[in-house]
Design a protein around this nucleic acid. Structure first.
Lengths: 283, 283
DNA sequence: CAGCAACGATACCCGCGCGGTATCGGCCTC
DNA sequence: GAGGCCGATACCGCGCGGGTATCGTTGCTG
C-alpha cells in the first residue's frame, strides 16, 4: 500500500471508470486494474463493485478514498515543507503574458494558500517566448501553451483547447460557423520576431510560412486584426472585443495548455504546483 | 517518496546508524544507504550529516522525520479503518499462557487504545502449544516464544532473551553465576505432553531427550522444581519466588519472543498489531 | 606509526514487480 | 446477432530494489 498505488486508487474512485482513470494517470488500463486488485488484496477488502452498469465504491472504498486523499495531501505538503526547510522556499512561475487564461492567477493564489511558507513569484512574458524564461533559468516552472522545443524540459499537459481564427467582425468569413486553413489562404497572418521558437511560430501560422506584421503581445495581435485585416488564431472559450469574431478551425490540432520545468524530475515545490494545476484545470 | 522509503528513513533517523537501521529493517546496509540517497535526491534536500563522528539529522531531516512519523501513523490507522469498514473488526491474539512476560497485556491495551473500533480478544494457552492456537485457526496472531514448526506461518522476532536454568535455591549449583548444559547432565527435566511441537520440546530440554514429570503450565514447572528437584529453563529477566534460583546458561541459544500469523501476508489488523509490538518491545 | 576495526559508499549481479501490448469475455445497444 | 464498450487476463521486457563483495576514510590502539 504505497502512495503511488493510493494515487491510482483515488483516480479510479473519482472517475469511477478504469479507462479514464488510466488516461488521467498517463498509463494504460491493464496495469491499473492489476494495481487496484493488488491494493484490494493488501487491504483485505473489496474496494470497487464492478458491474455492467459501471464501477461503484464499496463502503470500504469510501473510507479508503477519504483517508487516501488526506494522506496524499499530507504527503504533498510534507515534501514542500522539507524543501522549504532545506532553503528552497521560493517558487518562480512563468506565465505567458497578457494571458487570456484567467486560471493562472487563481492557481498561484491557491498555491500560496496551500503552502503559506513558500514565496511565489509571478513572471509574465510576452508571446515571443513560450517557455516564459524557463530556458534562461528565470523561472522554476512555466504555465504556458505549446508547442515549443521541449528538449531538456519536461512538459505536462493540463488542458487542450480547440483553436479558432480571429477575424474582424465585418470579414466575409466571420459569419461562418467553422473554417479550415484553406479558407484563409492568401491572408496576412501576424508574425513573431526573429528568433522565436520555430514550432511555436509555425503552429500559430497554421503550419506554413506567412507574411504579416510582427507582434509581441496579445493586444498587438488583436490590434493587427482590427486595423490591418490580418488574421490569426486564438484558443476558443475566451472573451474578445465585439469587433472581433472567432470562428473554430476544424483542421488545427488543439492548443495544449501545459506546465513545464527544466530537467526531468521536478523539485517538490514544482511537483506540488503541477499537481495543484492539474487538479485545477480538470474542472 | 513512497511509504516504504519513509519507513527506511525513520529507522535511520531513529538509530542514527545505517547498519543498525538495516538490521531493524531486516535488510542489508547498502540498499538502505542507496534508498536514503535517492530519498535525499527526490526531496531535493540533504537529510543526514555523515561525518566520522556519526550520523546526524539536518534541519530538513528533522522536519521530514516529524512529518514521516505522522504520515506513517496515519497510513497504519487507515489500513485498519478500511479493514474494519470491510467487516474484519475483530482481532484475536493468542498469548502463551501464564506468561511471565508482562508486556503482552500492555501491548493489547495499547492496540485497543490505538484502534478503538477494533475488538481485541485475548486467548491464553498453556505451554503445550507454542503457536497459541494459530494452527487451529483459533487466533489471528500469536504473541509467543520460539522455537516451533514455522511451516505455513510467518514469524517476526520481537526480542531475544538469554535463558537460564531454574533450580531450587538449595541446589549445589544455585550459587554459581553461570552454567552450561553439561553441568546439568543426569538431572530430571520437566517434559511436555505427547504431541507437543518437537522443536519446542527439544529446545526447553536443552537439545536432548530427558526424563522427568510432564507439565502443562508455568506454575506446574515451578512446582516440579520445588518439590522434585527437577530442573528446567526460563528466560532471564523475570521474577521468580525466592525459593528458586535462575542461573544463566552460557551455551543455550536465546529464547526468541515472536509474533506469528498464518500465511505470508498479514491482514491490516495483524500488520498494525505486529508494528506496535515491534516498537513496544524495542524499549 | 602500523595495524585494525568500524562504518558508510561503491560496484556489480540477479530476480521480481510494474508497465507495456494483444486479446478475451461479458454485457448492452441497435 | 453483430458490434462496441469496458474490465480482466496473458504474456513480455526492463528497471528497480534487493543481495554480496569490496573499497575508502577515520579513529583507536598496541
Amino acid at each position: 500500500m504505497e502512495l503511488r498505488t493510493l494515487r491510482y486508487f483515488v483516480a479510479v474512485a473519482e472517475e469511477l471508470h478504469f479507462g479514464r482513470a488510466a488516461v488521467r494517470l498517463h498509463m494504460s488500463q491493464p496495469p491499473l486494474s492489476r494495481a487496484i486488485r493488488k491494493l484490494e488484496h493488501d487491504a483485505g477488502a473489496v474496494l470497487f463493485e464492478r458491474s455492467a452498469a459501471g464501477v461503484t465504491l464499496t463502503p470500504a472504498g469510501v473510507v479508503l478514498l477519504e483517508e487516501s486523499r488526506a494522506l496524499l495531501d499530507r504527503a504533498d505538503r510534507m515534501r514542500v515543507r522539507v524543501a522549504a526547510a532545506a532553503g528552497a522556499a521560493t517558487l518562480t512561475v512563468g506565465i505567458l503574458g497578457d494571458s487570456t487564461d484567467p486560471g493562472a492567477m487563481r492557481l498561484a493564489a491557491a498555491y500560496r494558500r496551500r503552502h503559506p511558507g513558500v514565496e511565489v513569484r509571478i513572471r509574465e512574458t510576452d508571446l515571443t517566448d513560450p517557455t516564459c524564461g524557463l530556458r534562461a533559468g528565470l523561472v522554476d516552472v512555466a504555465l504556458t501553451r505549446g508547442p515549443f522545443d521541449e528538449t531538456g524540459l519536461t512538459v505536462c499537459e493540463l488542458r487542450a483547447d480547440p483553436v479558432g481564427a480571429v477575424l474582424r467582425a465585418d470579414d466575409p468569413l466571420a459569419c461562418r460557423d467553422r473554417l479550415t486553413l484553406a479558407d484563409l489562404a492568401g491572408r496576412r497572418w501576424f508574425q513573431f520576431p526573429e528568433g522565436t521558437d520555430p514550432s511555436w511560430q509555425s503552429y500559430w501560422n497554421g503550419g506554413e510560412p506567412r507574411e504579416g506584421p510582427v507582434v509581441r503581445a496579445v493586444q498587438e495581435c488583436l490590434q493587427a486584426v482590427l486595423w490591418n485585416g490580418t488574421v490569426g488564431m486564438t484558443p476558443l472559450g475566451h472573451d474578445h472585443p465585439g469587433e472581433l469574431a472567432v470562428v473554430p478551425l476544424t483542421d488545427m490540432a488543439p492548443s495544449r495548455v501545459v506546465a513545464a520545468w527544466n530537467g526531468s524530475d521536478p523539485n517538490p515545490l514544482i511537483r506540488s504546483f503541477v499537481r495543484i494545476a492539474t487538479a485545477a484545470y480538470r474542472d
